[in-house]
Amino acid sequence: MGFHEIRFPANLSFGSVGGPERRTEIVMLANGFEERNTPWEHSRRRYDAGVGMRSLDDIAALIAFFEARRGQMFGFRWKDWSDYRSGRASQPVTAFDQEIAVGNGLRTEFQLIKTYRSGGQAYARPVQKPVQGTVLVALDRDEKVMGQEVTVDPRSGLITFETPPAKGAVIWAGFEFDVPVRFDTDRIQTSVASFQAGDVPNVPVVEVRV
């Protein structure tokens, strides 16, 4: 799949609407009960970037970005302003925001994840597009030196330790992250309302698997 490691202008995604989508198959039984199943292990997010357009300069930036991605052809990074940190949105990133895994004395590579909890249930979301320079990693309670003791691949979200973490050692991480997306249309329609203001009614964006 073609993917460009470039972020959609964050000032244009600010104010956009969207969020996670799930697919659930529901079968109504003869006795009135339901059977529910989902073919998706992970949710997928959709957004409308048109809401963030505020000026003709914004529209020009959107069109340039759209043309450079060849419409739906190439994916790109998207900042979801409602969910872009490993911890609470109101708090700065720390190395102890998320428990990533537990060492076994052999593995050196681990996938960044963000876990969503409610009641006794939890969902672990793979994070594959961390923002470079924001990732912090700790082993048990010892924060590691990025670039020396541990490295991160911003294209995949894999963290790699120089030496395998000991068996039973808890691996922690904190980070900011983007969502891998593509345009969900091959056409951008604009309507100029005045010389200094424009209107883009619908610019759909959808998350992609990478």
Rank of each mutant, 00 (worst) to 15 (best):
G157M: 04
L158D: 04
I159S: 04
T160H: 14
T160A: 13
T160Y: 13
F161H: 07
F161D: 03
E162A: 12
E162F: 03
T163C: 07
T163G: 05
P164G: 08
P164S: 10
P165I: 11
P165W: 03
A166G: 13
A166V: 11
A166Q: 13
A166W: 10
K167H: 11
K167Y: 08
G168H: 08
G168T: 11
G168S: 10
G168D: 05
G168V: 00
A169M: 03
A169F: 11
A169C: 11
V170C: 06
V170F: 06
I171D: 03
I171L: 07
I171T: 04
I171K: 01
A173S: 08
A173P: 12
G174N: 03
G174L: 06
F175I: 07
F175K: 03
E176S: 15
E176P: 09
E176K: 14
F177R: 06
F177D: 08
D178G: 03
D178K: 13
P180E: 03
V181L: 05
V181C: 05
R182T: 13
R182F: 05
F183H: 02
F183P: 01
F183V: 04
F183W: 03
D184R: 00
T185D: 10
T185M: 02
D186I: 03
I188M: 09
I188V: 15
I188E: 08
Q189R: 13
T190R: 05
T190D: 05
S191T: 13
V192Q: 09
V192M: 14
